[in-house]
Structures are given as C-alpha cells and as structure tokens.
C-alpha cells in the first residue's frame, strides 16, 4: 500500500520555526482561509468547492425505495465519500484509509446525526415508499483541509438539490417529471459547517485554520468543530494528539462560530445568485407569459 509521502526534516524544522515567528508558508494570517470558491453545476444538487488547491465535488441524487423496516416513517439519507488515487497516490480504491474513515464519520455526524435534513419529510407511504437521498462526495484534488471543504460541498449540494414533486391520491403515488411540476427543495432544518483547527508547538499553543497538506502533516494535533450559524455545536472531534489547554479549545469554539457564520453567509449568497441565474428563463418567463394572456 502506498504511503503518504512524508516531508523532510528540513521542511519540518522550517515550517515550525516560521510558525513560531508568526509566518505561514503562503503568507496567510493564522486564521485566514485560502481562496474559497463554490460553484453549482447545471443540474440541481451538484456543488464544486475549491479551497486553494483542494477541490471536492458533491453530487446529490434521489430515488424512490422502500424504507428500512425498523424506521417506517423515515426516508433514507446516505453520504458516501470516495477518495480516489486521483486526489493523491496514497489513496487506493476500495481500501479506505484512515483519512477516509474519519472524513465519512465526520460528515455523518455533522450532517446526518445533527438532523440537518428532515428525514421524516422524505417518507411517501409509511412503511412502503420513501425517498432515498444519496450524496456522493468525490475528492478531486487534495491539498489539505479536506474536511471543511467536503462539509461545505455536501451542505451546499443538498441545499441546492431539488427532488421531483409527488402527490398521493388514495393508494396511488405519482412522481412528476420536472416538466409537469417544478421540482421541490428538500426540507432543510439547519446548515452545519466544519471548521478544522490545527495545533503546533510543544504545547499546541499555535493554532491554524485551513491548513495545507504540508501543514496538516506537521501538526501535533487537530480539533474539528462543526456548528451552524445559530451557535449550535453539532460535533466536536479532537481525536487524540498532543494535549491542548482547555481554554484554547473554548477559544476555538468561538472562533469557529465566527467562521461558521461567514461560511453560512457565503453559501446563502451563492445560492441566491444561482437561483437568480436559473430564474431568467424559467419561472419569471412563465409568469409573464400568463400575464399577457
């Protein structure tokens, strides 16, 4: 199994030295993100997030299936992550690395367990038919901070997604094509965002946001906080690593809140831009046509 290429001793020493002098390799401030870009695809439910040289793509699809027997009133919601060798030669297909397991667990906890998507709304006929919403996450290029990027992509894709409209008359369930009825958005409760903190130094006293791959390899420990703009923590994961003072973790939480709000605003803005772009020929044109008659 190919291992991740490890940085040399010189790089290790230099990066830590530079951080102690308050400098980052790419000249960013410690709490500054790299250039973040979010694009939506032509279809509903495709989000492409670029964070510096890291790039992730999330795609949402929906189909009608039978619900799980033990949960007849809930729809099915799954997130699958794929870290292919395209992102880094250290990843192999069908053999999940530790990075992949932690990433999918984290998305699961952040988005699924925090009830960001109302799964009860996906139920069509209790115990018989429900929507199965599936998010496929592909990492196209890996230059650190996969988690923040992936989480944003998943949330953005889900909020962008529209599922076909349905109606029930008696026992018959009708699924309408987009031409018949405008597809409907998912019933979305809140948008969580992941913020990853990387710690450096003997005592973990230096704290970085949005670490690059090299910085990630050299950190002594990390802490991932997921929260929404209402200040609700959905998940905290500081999985081992050098112990960090409790006080600085609380500082992280408040820093994460500020950052989470920023991301939330960005996402809202991008979604609004996208719907504006789509509306040009769509609903507005339709409405005006009706008025003419």
């Amino acid at each position: 199994m190919p291992r991740e290429a490890e940085p040399s001793l010189n790089e290790r020493a230099f990066v830590v030295q530079a951080l102690q002098e308050g400098l980052r390799l790419d000249g960013r401030a410690f709490d500054q993100f790299r250039g973040l870009d979010l694009k939506f695809g032509d279809h509903y439910g495709v989000a492409d997030v670029t964070l510096g040289k890291t790039r992730v793509l999330a795609n949402v699809s929906a189909e009608v299936t039978a619900p799980y027997i033990d949960r007849p009133f809930d729809g099915i919601f799954t997130i699958t992550t794929e870290l292919s060798p395209m992102a880094s030669p250290a990843f192999e297909v069908n053999r999940p690395t530790e990075t992949e397991v932690l990433l999918s667990r984290l998305l699961e906890k952040t988005v699924r367990r925090s009830n960001a998507l109302d799964t009860e709304s996906l139920c069509l006929i209790a115990g018989q038919k429900c929507w199965s919403i599936r998010v496929d996450l592909h990492v196209l290029s890996h230059d650190g901070n996969l988690i923040d990027g992936s989480c944003l992509a998943v949330v953005a894709a889900l909020r962008h997604f529209r599922r076909p409209d349905t109606s029930i008359e008696g026992e018959t369930l009708t699924v309408y094509t987009p031409a018949e009825r405008e597809p409907v958005p998912l019933s979305w409760l809140h948008s969580p965002f992941c913020i990853t903190f990387s710690f450096y130094g003997e005592e973990g006293e230096i704290m970085l946001l949005d670490a690059t791959l090299l910085e990630e390899q050299l950190r002594v420990s990390s802490c991932i906080i997921s929260l929404n703009k209402h200040g609700e923590i959905c998940q905290i994961a500081k999985l081992g690593g050098t112990p960090v003072e409790a006080v600085s973790l609380i500082q992280c939480a408040s820093a994460a809140l500020t950052k989470g709000k920023e991301l939330s605003t960005l996402l809202d803005q991008k979604l609004a831009e996208d719907s504006k772009r789509r509306d040009k020929g769509g609903l507005l044109a339709e409405l005006s046509a009706e008025n003419e008659r």
Binding site: S114, N115, E232, I233, L249, A253
Partner: peptide, 22 residues
C-alpha cells in the same frame, strides 16, 4: 491538569454550554 487530549462531542449543544460542560 487541564490539558485536553481528547474531546469528542456528537450531539447538538449550544456553544455557550461548552465551557460549563468542559
């Protein structure tokens, strides 16, 4: 000491609640 090696939270909670819990 107050040095935290592991901190795992998997449920929704207000940020303000964190300090007391910790």
């Amino acid at each position: 000491t107050d040095k935290v090696a592991v901190l795992v939270c998997e449920s929704r909670v207000q940020v303000s609640r964190l300090e007391g819990m910790m």
